[in-house]
Every structure is written in C-alpha cells, then in structure tokens.
Nucleic acid binder design. Structure first.
Lengths: 218, 218, 218, 218
DNA sequence: TATGAATGAGGTTTCATTCAT
DNA sequence: TATGAATGAAACCTCATTCAT
C-alpha cells in the first residue's frame, strides 16, 4: 500500500540522501531489467547489485513491477523532454532529425529505455498502460516534427508523417543490439549515419558529391 | 536421458502423422513465445493451445528451451533460405532490397522470428549460441547483397556494406509492434515504403517526379 | 485461473477416485484451519497432514483462501441443509430447538464450522462475502423456526424472533472451546442442557417438578 | 537482552508521562488485535495507529506477542476485578447475573477481550498459558456466584453450577459479532435480554404477566 | 524517544519437469 | 500417445525484529 517512500519529501532539500539511495536501487533495477528483460530479471539479481537482500528491496518499492514502471517512467520522461526541446528549438528538419536520432541512440544505449519498455508485451499487473502512454507521447512528438517541416515546405504537402515516424522509430529501436556495447564516439557516428539513411537513403543521389555512406577510415 | 522424442522416426514413411502432430505442438509453442516471450510463456500456455497437459509436451521436446530453439531454428532457416534465393536471383540492388524487406516483414509478421529470437537476451541454457549463429548468417547474406551491388557499380566502391546491413535490419526488426496486426496487403505496402525510405530517404530528391512517401489515399 | 480440478467431473461416477483425493486434501485443510485459524495456518501445515509438499496443494485448489472458502462452503451447506430439514419437519418448537441445537453442536464439534468461518474477520481476498451469505442463510432458518412457533401460538404474538436467534446462536457458537474435545455422548448431553437453558432458563419454574439443570450423575 | 522497556520506571512519579504513552501504544495494539486477530494484525498496523514506525514499537514492548499478552492481561484483570466486586456485593442471583452479563457485554464490546484472547488458539510463544489462567479465574468467579445462590436456596441444591457457567459464558462470548457495533444503550438492552433468556428461558412461563422477549417498540 | 535502513526467516505461489499408468 | 499426480526449486513478497544514529 502506501509505501514508506511516500512519506519522504518532507524537508525540501534534505531528502537527498534518502533519495540518492532510492535512486541507486532503481538504477540497479534498470540495469538488470535492461540486461534480462522484466520477466527474466529476478529480485535477487537486483538486490545483489546493490548489496541488499531481495526482501529489502521492498523498502524502496512496492513490487517488482512497480520498480519496473518507475524505471521506465523516469527514463521515458527524460526521452520525451529532450525530444520536446528539439521540437521547440531552431533548425531545419534535417537538423532536428539528426539531433533526435542522436539523442535517442545516446540515451537508449545508456539507459536502454526502449529495450526495457518495448521488450515487455503484457506486464502481469496494470503498469503497462502508463508505459504505452509514454511511448505514444514520444511518437506524437516525432510526428509533430515532421508536420512542422511540412508546414515549412521542407517536405511535400502530402508527406506521410505517421509513416515516417514509424520508420524512424523502427530504425532507432531495432538497432540496440548492435550498438549497446559501442563507445559514445561510435554511437554518434552511427547516429549520423542512421540520420543519413533516413533522410537521403542508401542509393547515391545524382549530381551530388556524395560523402555519405562510405566506409569509415580506421 | 534418452528422451521419448528420440523414439520417433522409426518407420521411414509412417513418421508423417507423428511429425504433423509435432509440428502442431511447435506451432503452438511458436505462437505463445511470440506473444509473451520466452520467459513469460509457460508450458501450460503452450499445452492449452494444442489441447494437451503440460507434462505431455515432453513427449515432443526435451525442455521448454529446446522447444524455443527448435522454433527459432525452423523459422530462422526459412528466413535464411529465402534471402539466399533472393541473393542468388536476378535483379538490381533495388529489386533485391525490396524483395528482401518484403519477405522479412511478411514472414516476421506471420512467425515473429525476430521478436522471438532477439527478444531473449541470455537464455538460461546454452541454446542462445545457435540462435545467434543463425542471425549472423542472415546478416551476412544481406551484406553480400550490398557487396554484389558495389561490384556491379550500383553503389560506390567505398559504400559501407556492414553499416547498411545494420540499418536495414534495424528498420525491419524495430517495427514489428506496428505491423504485427496489419493485414497481408498492408504489410506489402509498409514493406514498399520501408524500402523506399531505405533506398531513397525521406527528403525529396531534386528533379524527380516523386510519388514516394505520400499519404496513402483512403 | 481455471484450475485443473474444474476439468474433472466428466465421467459421472468414475470421477470418485480423483474427488476422493481432493476431499482428503480439503479435510486436511479443514482440520488445520480449525486448529489454528486461517491466518495462523500455513500451507505447509496442510501439506504435511496429507503427505504433500506445499506447492503440490495448488494442484487441488487455487489459493489458500480458496481452500478456506471451499472448506467453509461445504461444511456450511451441510449445516444449512440439516437445519432446513428440521424446519420443514414435524414437531413442536421445543423439539425443533432441541434438534437444531443438537445438530449444531454435533457437527460443529466434528467440523468446527463456526470456529472456522466466524473466526476470520476480513479475509485477505474476496472470499468473505460468500461465507457471510452462508451464515445469514443459517440465521434466517432459525428465525423461521421461531416465526412458525409464533404462528402456531407456541410463542406470544410479539415474540422477538430475531433476538432469540441471536441468543441461540451466541449460546451455540460461544461454547466450542468447552466442548470441542468432548465425546459424542457428552455433546448430546450438553446440547440437551443448552436447549433447556434456552427454552426454560436457569431459574426454577414454580410448580414444576424440575429435573432440569441438575448435576449429572457420574 | 535487556529491553529498553526495562529502562522505564526510574523516577517514581515522573513515570506518568512515559506510562501514558505506553498506554496509548497498548490501546492501539488492543484495537488492532481486536479488529484483526493476533496473526493478521501487523506491527505496522499498530504503529500507524499511534503515528510511529514499526521498529519504534519495540521501545514499548519486547515482541508482538508480549504486547498481545499485555493487552489481554490488562483487560482480563479488569474483567475479573469487576466480576469479583459483583460477587462480593449485595443482591439476589438474578441481580448478579444481570449485572455480570451487563458488564461483560459492556466491556467486551469496548475492549473485545474475549474476541482477542479466545480468538487465538495456540500463540506462537508461551504467552497462552497466562491468558488461559486469566480466563479460568473468570469462570471460577461465575461458578462461585452460582454456588452462593445454591447456598442461599435461590437455586436447587443439585444445580449444576459448572454447566450454568459454561452456558452463560457461551451466550456472552458468542454474540460479539452481533453487538460490537451497537450503541451503549442498545448494549444494555441486549444484556438485559440475554439475562432474561438465561434466567427464564424463551418459553412463556405460565401464570406470569410476561413482558419479556417482546419485540422492542421502535 | 524515535527513525531509517536493513535483515532473515518464513510465507504463498508458480512452474518446468518427471514418471507410473 | 497422453494423463494425473507430484516434486523441487525458485520466485515474489511480508513482516517481526534489530540497531546505529
């Protein structure tokens, strides 16, 4: 029921030490969920990672599923906030697509949001709805980026924004297995390349001095 | 021990009836694994689907993991065989990419191969290696398609075939959630669109009479 | 969900062997619940009593609470059926009160229905409602016995049937602790005495040759 | 070890404030035990009720069972003291029975002594013996009331005092479920009615102008 | 006097798996 | 070929209790 964690947040800035520990626990949970998925992850896995016993985790959250949702919520909100900033900021469609893809891959590698959240069809409890809602918000933000580009005549007036969103997210989410162990520098390169594919395609454009899609010099 | 499954395949041509039943069981397993993932799927789920009791499944396979690997193996081999045929066949790069993406989405929707196989990081037993090997074969086939296009001067000589493969597979695998309930006809449309994105990109090509990426007429 | 036990009852008379085992398990559960109450009883207690492991109990019922409810339902229905037969049968009020009290004490000693069912305020799940409903049926049957006596002029027209029911049930249920280890013969004597107290009171009736309430000869 | 509770009661008259707090805690424990029973009650339930954390309760008692015993002891001693006063006081048997039943119901409603104490067959620790002893004292007091009435010729010389005690206590204890939410005024009425049932019985006495057992005017 | 954090034992439950029939 | 009964391990979770602060 009402977790003790809810009793916190009394003193506005002194709550940090307690919250820090809670964050440690949730970070451990995030790591384990990312590595194994919700169902294969055990409370013992998480507990071991923070040096607790499984039962002690329940001091910090009410259930395994609640921890999972908390993890996804925090990560997902960060995702949405960053993409909203990109949408609201300056730049052409290309700029925004590049920035959006880059931040997606960057944080998804570090936090594995999509792996965690999308990996679980049907949570046992009722937590799935909130996660799906967060995902829809993210999709809508991408769609608005495309629609803004249509309004700015960067894209034809009958451009299929929905479909582009689906393709872009598919591209980004489908690749985690390949880049999850890459260095941050390489992530940026992959992100740039994905943006290129998405914006320009693999085929050479006629008349352009193309530097895209070339093998990276070692 | 010597599993009862090993007692099968005695009479060389009478095995068909038994094998048919075994295929039914594996199909049920495939469906359940696709719907829930390996860990969340229970032997009871599978048994219910074929009208058996959980214990009776062990007449057909040695363990839940063995069933999972068998499912993925069969589906994965089909995937590889079809792509190999495309690679060996005639046509330009564009033709092959379109055909490859189409068959990937088609069969992935029906059989959810990538969902099943990639969804499971770390199987409990040792079955993961075989699945990863199957996946690598598939990747290599795609790479060979691109390399052939480079040799045929359809792509620049320094085209990054590896990277293109990663992007293409990411695009295809990342979208299952969106198309898994679509009709076969719509799958074909999505596949065509994905191929367009991959080959030509989202941005309008100058000087072309573009019909790509438009909103589909209702 | 749908327990395997629900799949039974196919062959109308051959189901007995399976049902007999299930009854054994439920009897064990009844004994443990009666001895310790719902909360203090553990699944291990029950399992030990039938020579099973705790997990194996779930082959026979879905949860500890479901077992508890099943036990109470069966016992309670027997209670109600027997009292309904007394109500419908012949005899004066005194006869029926004597018979009703006797059967209550008799079966409550053997099956501890009221101990089990009334002992639990607030079951964790939702099973409490059914049990309360069963109890209300029993109360109503007693009330009808009194009302029938009013109609038959055995009791004054303004006799408080409800209040009598409460008193009678209080008398019967409150005494389990004293008679739960007594022999069947002594139970009958106690029942007769309780009926006397209830019908005639402790004080001597004037003008009557009283043999009631005397110390039993050894 | 030496519990902190032992550190109390140092200054002989300053102990009042501490004791008051301890009483509050025990009252909370009593309420929770009464509402849920010993096993279903949790230390958190009790702590919540006094605005403490569960661990803080151990400043006031050594264990949950110790708290339970303390609660029952205090309540039980009050019960016994009041009944002893009635026994020692003036009045006929009827007067004493009426007074005894009234005080029993009165305080049992408020403090649920019998519910608490009798509800628990088999405490985990060794506290049960003391509680049973307290109960036996109470029973003996009632028996002495009846024996005094025999000596005073209010009851026949062979009246079964033991049996009357059992019946009376059964009547009083078995009815808590019905009267625990009634108002004090109604409790008094119920007590009077129970006393009537116990003394005179339900059947009409011949030749008496009976006002007993009538439905209460609204 | 009370808290916050943790323990550890034990509880209920799930489930892959086995095996006699 | 399949069932029914059971196992045993491990899962999630609860909770009385401890102890440094």
């Amino acid at each position: 029921m009402a977790n003790r964690a809810a009793l916190r947040a009394k003193s506005p800035h002194q709550a940090t030490k307690q919250d820090r520990r809670r964050d440690e626990v949730l970070d451990a949970a995030a790591a384990v969920f990312a590595a194994k998925g919700f169902h294969a992850a055990t409370t013992k896995d998480i507990a071991d990672r923070v040096g607790l016993l499984p039962g002690s985790l329940y001091y910090y959250f009410e259930s395994k599923e609640a921890a999972f949702v908390a993890v996804c919520r925090r990560r997902g909100q960060g995702f949405n906030a960053r993409l909203a900033a990109i949408l609201a900021g300056p730049g052409t469609l290309s700029d925004k697509v590049r920035a959006g893809i880059a931040q997606h891959l960057r944080h998804n590698r570090a936090e594995l949001v999509s792996t965690i959240a999308f990996g679980e069809r049907a949570l046992p409890g009722g937590g799935g709805a909130e996660l799906r809602a967060l995902g829809r918000v993210y999709e809508r933000l991408w769609e608005r980026i495309f629609r803004a580009a249509v309004r700015a005549r960067e894209l034809p007036h009958d451009f299929d924004c929905r479909s582009a969103t689906v393709a872009l997210l598919a591209l980004c989410n489908g690749a985690i297995h390949w880049y999850e162990r890459k260095s941050p520098r390489e992530i940026e390169r992959i992100a740039a390349r994905f943006a290129d594919y998405f914006l320009n395609g693999a085929l050479p454009r006629r008349g352009g001095l193309e530097t895209r899609h070339r093998t990276a010099p070692p």
